Simulated scan of single mutants.
Amino acid sequence: MSKETLTSTFTELRKGFFRLAMRFLSNQEDADDTLQEAFFRLWKHADRIDTPEEAEALTIVTVKNLCIDTLRKKSHLHTVELDEGRDDAVAESATDTLEREERFKAVERIIEQRLTPLQRQILHMKEYEGKEYDEIAAKLGMQPPAVRMQLSRARKEIRECYLKQMER
């Protein structure tokens, strides 16, 4: 695959990659930095990437891993607060970050283990790529109400499985 193909794939899907980064990170600058670093890392290996689909998958994994790395680094940073409860605030934010990361991993496992391939594809197109129901339906050869139903069922399955896991 040429570097031009990597660039066009990345540019075309950048908004979705940005939304993925923002789900992990609450800071736009961190999300932008993560996307830049992901592209830089993939650029070095562009000759080993064969298709736009492979470039997309590798970018998603790279962005996700870089987000997790950023969260881990931030949880280890020692900041000095001006109030007396600073130690509690730092410990609480690190704990919150790790808990959020664990919740995200739990949801990912549910998606991989419990959803059908069609539901996973629709969820990915809607949530990560930001496509509209009509676009998804056209791409998958379905009617928009069928796409909505599949997405609704997928979300219900995720919610129910997640709540069962939290009860344990």
Rank of each mutant, 00 (worst) to 15 (best):
Q121I: 05
L123E: 11
I110A: 11
K73Y: 06
D33T: 08
A31W: 00
L13Q: 15
E127Q: 13
T5M: 02
E99K: 01
S26Q: 14
F18A: 08
T51A: 00
S75Y: 03
A55N: 06
R120G: 02
K126N: 10
D87F: 11
L66E: 11
R103D: 15
V63R: 04
D32Q: 11
D83P: 01
K44G: 12
V63M: 09
A146K: 08
E29Y: 03
A91D: 09
R19A: 12
T95H: 09
R159I: 05
I49M: 02
M22H: 03
V90L: 13
I136P: 01
A38H: 04
F17N: 06
G130C: 09
E56Y: 11
R41V: 04
G16D: 10
G141R: 05
K64W: 07
M166T: 12
K74C: 01
D88P: 01
T62Y: 03
E37F: 01
Q165C: 02
T62H: 05
F17Y: 15
Q150I: 06
H76D: 04
R100H: 08
I158A: 15
D134Q: 11
T11F: 03
F17S: 06
A89I: 12
L20M: 13
L71K: 05
K164D: 15
S26V: 07
W43Y: 15
Q113P: 01
E101L: 11
L71I: 12
E101K: 01
E132W: 05
L151Y: 14
R14W: 04
F24T: 07
K131L: 15
A106T: 15
I60C: 02
R41W: 04
L35M: 09
R148P: 01
K64H: 12
F104M: 12
L58F: 08
Q28S: 12
Y162C: 06
E101Q: 09
V107M: 13
L77W: 06
D134S: 10
A21Y: 00
L42D: 08
E135P: 00
Q36K: 08
E101N: 03
I158P: 09
R114H: 14
R109D: 13
S26W: 08
T79G: 09
I136T: 04
Q143M: 04
V61I: 12
E167L: 06
G141V: 06
E81V: 03
N65A: 08
S152P: 01
E108W: 07
A57K: 00
R48G: 01
D87H: 12
E81F: 07
V80P: 01
Q121S: 14
K164V: 13
L42T: 12
N65L: 06
L163A: 15
S75N: 13
Q28D: 13
R109W: 05
K156Y: 10
K105F: 03
A146N: 14
A94W: 00
T34L: 04
L82V: 02
Q121N: 15
Q143V: 02
V80D: 14
T95E: 13
Q28M: 03
G16L: 04
Q119F: 01
Q119R: 05
E12V: 02
Q119S: 09
E112F: 06
E37K: 07
T34M: 03
S75W: 03
F40T: 13
L98F: 10
L115D: 11
K126F: 07
R100E: 11
R109H: 09
L58Q: 08
Y133G: 03
M149S: 15
